[in-house]
Design a protein around this nucleic acid. Structure first.
Length: 650
DNA sequence: CTAGGGTTAG
């Protein structure tokens, strides 16, 4: 009876029954203990353990495993030191705990200290080395071990797979005296990871014992090799699915840029009644982040809270990113503060989030408190810190960090750091310094680096440098239409219309396709997308009427539509006309009409916001008294009371 | 207690 409740994870019923039992033997205590332990209730498990009148080795194993599996490794270690007559299962658990922490030296010490070793002890040690790329050590132990079973062999195969040594992995696999589904799945995953889907498929078809994991391996493999249609075929065909299958296909669609389909599948999954696991939460939240589906994201957040997941690492980080990328930086900070187990990704996400919103000071504050907490920053952190400085115009501080990060944190500057610095110096008008830094950097500049210089040249009207940068970029990335647009805008700024025209012809000759600009906004759970001069939206009359009205008000406020700033993507005669109808403006207008007063209007654009719209939206925020948050392809703009969080500096 | 499938920052 008690074990039935525990098996069904009905722990409150189990507890009630347990409390009413007239007599409890050690088995009943252990049953409840393991029930708590396996469902993450470590404190309850510990309480039961402490109250037990007598304990056997199963009880000791239970509490030790509870600590190890729920991330309380320090408690496990201390408990382990309190007595010496552990049974072999506990020794093995403890060793596995060290292995999971990648503390192989400690694991090995335990392995040598233990009174007797069984095959699990050997396997744990072998797989520990194998998983950490120490194949020589793994191989040595493999040879030394008295017997080998299917675990031992599979651990070796897995190790070679992880190290990318597929030929060796296959050699071992072919020698195995006994093969099970896990061994097959291991080698198949190896082939998918080195993009050999043909060989993976061959083995998948050949294996006699396919299980759900085999299908999941193949689905992930196809998805990650850009063959989402094949992935979908398998997903539709598979005899049974689990939550990992759903996570794999959702992530597949999301990563191949089809966020809408990913979210449709997520909704289908909920209708199907499938349980949600951490991966499903993680990749769904990440998809919401990509298309800034804040309403849906919040609903997923709600389900997450209901499901009672701890905000640990993966899920919490995805949630944090969702709020950041949906432009809801305050909520992001709430999530951040409430996360008990922050890891490096958590800190980096928050810093980068603030940086992209133009809140440089806040980003630096988080960076400071990260160091107070004793977390070592890595290269990604520094990209965030430098771009925070760059987006907020903090030249001196940024330069200081860049110069000291080597000795201070042991981080060698990568191309991205140089790009940040060139961006930082360039924006601040120090074009010569930026160019000099570029000459002195220990890498060949890539297109992104030249792009930063081109952007800065445009901002400060330096044609010579701009042309030089543009030329390099056209060589490296002839299809990068954004850069043609930048250079063409530089000419337009200076009124060099013949050069603008030349650029346009150049692009036509080269067959460069401009990426069409569009913007979208989420209203009542539905995404509304607008393109330039949109005329398909059912509410278009109201939208254009509002735009007309705003236009009149803008003129009264002293705003002059600056045709000199115009546009890359239109012919001259269309200029004045097109200004009104830029997608970001239309989306903002629609937001003003539909989003209740007092709530921010959040718009997303796939390209960089155009300068004229940026100006206009500043005024609009003042006229209508609304907070407008615009995410463009590089950062966020918070428009409020006539000014923008980017300080007109983006 | 040991082996496989998924998910987070730029």
């Amino acid at each position: 009876m008690l074990s039935g409740y525990v098996k069904n994870r009905n722990l409150s019923a189990a507890r009630l029954l347990f409390d009413e039992m007239p007599q409890r033997d050690v088995v009943s205590w252990n049953t409840l203990l393991s029930g708590y332990a396996q469902n993450g209730y470590v404190d309850e498990a510990k309480e039961i353990f402490d109250f037990m009148p007598n304990k056997n080795s199963i009880s000791w194993n239970g509490i030790l495993a509870a600590f190890i599996q729920n991330g309380r490794f320090e408690s496990a270690r201390q408990l382990f030191e309190t007595k010496s007559d552990w049974d072999i299962v506990s020794w093995n658990s403890m060793m596995a705990g060290y292995v999971r922490k990648k503390r192989l030296v400690d694991a090995k010490r335990l392995f040598e200290r233990m009174p007797e070793r069984d095959i699990v002890s050997w396997n744990t040690m072998i797989s520990g080395y194998a998983q950490n790329g120490e194949m020589l050590e793994a191989h040595k132990l493999f040879e030394e071990s008295p017997t080998q079973d299917v675990f031992t062999w599979t651990a070796m195969v897995s190790g070679y797979v992880q190290s990318g040594m597929l030929t060796e992995a296959r050699r071992i696999f072919d020698k195995m005296p006994e093969i099970n589904a896990v061994s097959w799945n291991t080698i198949i995953a190896g082939y998918t990871q080195c993009k050999r889907m043909d060989l993976a498929r061959e083995l998948f078809e050949a294996m006699p014992c396919q299980n759900i994991s085999s299908w999941n391996t193949m689905i992930t493999g196809y998805a990650q090799n850009g063959e989402i249609t094949c992935a979908r075929n398998l997903f539709d065909k598979m005899p049974q699915r689990d939550s990992i299958s759903w996570a794999a296909i959702i992530a597949g669609y999301s990563q191949s840029g089809n966020s809408e389909e990913a979210l449709c599948i997520f909704i289908e999954m909920m209708r199907d009644g499938e349980n949600m696991n951490r991966s499903v939460f993680t990749c769904t939240l990440s998809t919401c982040a990509d298309i800034a589906a804040l309403e849906l994201g919040k609903q997923v957040h709600g389900r997450l809270v209901k499901a009672g997941y701890e905000m640990g690492c993966f899920v919490g980080n995805a949630l944090l990113k969702m709020y950041c990328k949906c432009g809801s930086i305050e909520e992001s900070y709430d999530v951040f503060e409430g996360m008990p187990g922050k890891d490096l990704v958590t800190w980096n996400t928050m810093i980068i989030g603030y940086a992209k919103h133009g809140f440089g000071k806040e980003a630096l504050r988080v960076f400071e408190s990260m160091q107070v907490k004793g977390i070592q920053p890595d290269d990604v952190t520094m990209v965030g810190v430098l771009s925070a400085c760059s987006h907020s115009g903090l030249v001196d501080i940024g330069t200081e960090y860049f110069q000291t990060m080597g000795q201070e944190y042991g981080i060698t500057a990568k191309p991205q750091h140089y790009t940040c610095m060139i961006d930082l110096l360039g924006r601040a008008g120090c074009l010569e310094e930026a160019r000099a830094l570029m000459r002195n950097m220990p890498f060949e500049p890539d297109a992104a680096t030249w792009g930063a210089l081109l952007g800065a040249s445009r901002m400060h009207g330096n044609t010579k440098l701009g042309e030089e940068a543009a030329e390099k970029i056209f060589e490296m990335e002839p299809d990068n239409s954004g850069m043609y647009v930048l250079l063409s805008n530089l000419y337009a700024d200076l009124g060099r219309w013949s050069d603008v025209k030349k650029m346009r012809m150049f692009m036509r000759d080269k067959g460069v396709q401009k990426v069409p600009g569009y913007s979208w906004i989420e209203v009542q759970n539905k995404i509304h997308t607008f393109s330039v001069g949109d005329s398909v939206h059912p509410e278009k009359d109201r939208i254009y009427a509002l735009l007309e009205y705003l236009d009149q008000r803008l003129k009264k406020e002293g705003y002059i539509s600056a045709t000199k700033m115009v546009l890359h993507d239109v012919e001259e005669e269309e200029k004045e006309h097109m200004l009104k109808y830029h997608s970001e403006k239309i989306a903002v207008a629609y937001g003003i009409l539909t989003i209740p007063a007092g709530r921010p209007i959040r718009v997303i654009k796939n390209l960089r916001v155009c300068e004229d719209c940026h100006n206009a939206i500043k005024y609009i925020s003042k006229i209508v008294g609304r907070l407008i948050i615009l995410r463009d392809s590089t950062r966020f703009h918070h428009f409020n009371c006539g000014s923008c969080s980017c300080g007109d500096y983006w």
